[in-house]
Structure formats: structure tokens, C-alpha cells
């Protein structure tokens, strides 16, 4: 167990962990606005940790990525999702299968599970202090999946997907010293466009079905 050991614990680790915790707290509330707020905070933590990584590894590309995260995700996507929520008038997600508090506690358990998983993986020597990033990344991915599974509304599905994607980014940042810059930017563009298109489709779902509860979209069946 390295991640929580007293000597490694630096500010960077705290921030990396904070992003996973923000995601877990996001699971606990059904208010879409608070969910988006938590998402925004989570990406802010990501942007900060990318900055720190840049400082530690002396890599210019991480600074650019951090800036892109901050402007595209923390500000751009959050505002866009707020706007959709407001336009559609979706305030609350009632949840599916699990009560929300239980889902939140489950995601804490998933964090432990993520820690166990990430300990199974080999770590690069020079990235050893960032091993906690693996835990946080896997935890974000699992939390994102849990979020998608326990929610009804289309907009929550998008948030869950974005959380998952954040986890993948964090994993890449801390486990493989980051992807090449142009790949990173391409991924950004794809995710950004995916969210924009999903937003448009959510509008259309609202328009055609008069709700955005995806569990009720069952007209296409075998």
C-alpha cells in the first residue's frame, strides 16, 4: 500500500484524490444542478493536477492540456449542461435500482476496490508517487459507470459518461505520463462534440417524448 502512506502524501495526491471524492459525492445527490457543480469541481481538480504534473515532469504539453480541461470542461461543458437543464426544466433525478445514499456508499466501496485493482498493476518507477492516480482514475471510471446505471435521466447519463472519461484521462496522466498532445486534443474534440450532439438529442427526446427518462425509452424491442 503506497497511496495513503504518510511520506507520499503531498498536495498533488490530495488534489488527485479530491477529484475522485467529488465524483463520489456527485453520486449522492439527485439534484441535477448539484451534480453538474460536482462535475465541474471534479474537472477543476483534474486541471490542477495536470498543472502539478507539468511542474513535476517539466512537460509543456501538460500545461496546455490543463488549460484545455479548464476552459472546455470546467467552464464550457458545465455551462452547456446547466443551460440544457434549465431549458428542459429537469431538476431532479429520482434514481434507479438503488437509493442515492446507498449508491454513494457503494461508490466508496468501489474506491477501495479501485485501490486493490491499481495495486495489481505495474507502475513506472519515475511515476511511483503518482500511483494514487491509478486508484483515483479507476475509481472515477467505476463511479461513472455506477452513476449511469443508477440514474434515469438522459442528462445524468451524459454526466456519468463524462466522469468516466475524466477517469480515463487521469489514468493516462498518472500511469503513462500522458498521451501525445495531438491525440489528447483529438480526444477532447471528440468528447466535446459527443456531448454537444447528446445535448441536441436530449432536446429532441424532450420534444418527442415530453420527458428525458431513458428507462422509458423502450419502444424499440426485439
Amino acid at each position: 500500500m503506497i497511496s495513503f502512506s504518510p511520506f507520499m502524501f503531498s498536495f498533488l495526491q490530495a488534489i488527485i484524490l479530491a477529484s475522485a471524492i467529488m465524483a463520489i459525492l456527485m453520486v449522492g445527490t439527485g439534484q441535477i444542478r448539484s451534480n453538474i457543480m460536482f462535475y465541474s469541481l471534479q474537472t477543476l481538480c483534474l486541471a490542477l493536477s495536470a498543472c502539478f504534473c507539468a511542474a513535476i515532469e517539466h512537460e509543456l504539453k501538460h500545461y496546455i492540456v490543463a488549460l484545455a480541461i479548464f476552459f472546455v470542461k470546467t467552464i464550457g461543458l458545465s455551462t452547456f449542461l446547466f443551460w440544457i437543464t434549465k431549458r428542459i426544466g429537469a431538476a431532479k433525478d429520482l434514481g434507479l435500482y438503488l437509493p442515492l445514499p446507498i449508491a454513494m456508499h457503494l461508490s466508496v466501496v468501489l474506491l477501495v476496490f479501485a485501490q486493490i485493482l491499481s495495486n495489481q498493476l505495474p507502475h513506472l518507477n519515475h511515476l511511483q508517487p503518482l500511483a494514487i492516480g491509478g486508484t483515483a482514475g479507476i475509481s472515477l471510471i467505476l463511479t461513472g459507470i455506477l452513476f449511469m446505471l443508477t440514474r434515469r435521466l438522459a442528462i445524468s447519463q451524459v454526466l456519468g459518461f463524462l466522469t468516466m472519461e475524466n477517469g480515463i484521462f487521469l489514468f493516462a496522466l498518472t500511469q503513462s505520463s500522458g498521451m501525445p498532445l495531438f491525440i489528447e486534443m483529438g480526444i477532447f474534440l471528440d468528447v466535446f462534440v459527443a456531448v454537444m450532439i447528446s445535448g441536441l438529442i436530449i432536446f429532441k427526446i424532450k420534444h418527442s417524448f415530453e420527458h428525458i427518462d431513458v428507462t422509458l425509452l423502450t419502444s424499440l424491442r426485439d
Binding site: M1, S3, F4, S5, P6, I21, I24, L25, G28, L100, P101, M104, H105, V108, L111, V112, Q115
Partner: peptide, 17 residues
């Protein structure tokens, strides 16, 4: 539930240490 979650985090962190 949020206070319980915080408590759980604290416990997990303590166990990790």
C-alpha cells in the same frame, strides 16, 4: 448519508495508513 460517506473516507484512509 454525506456524513457517513465522509466517515467512510476517513476510515478507509486510516486503514490505508
Amino acid at each position: 448519508a454525506y456524513s457517513l460517506t465522509m466517515g467512510l473516507f476517513a476510515c478507509i484512509a486510516a486503514l490505508g495508513v
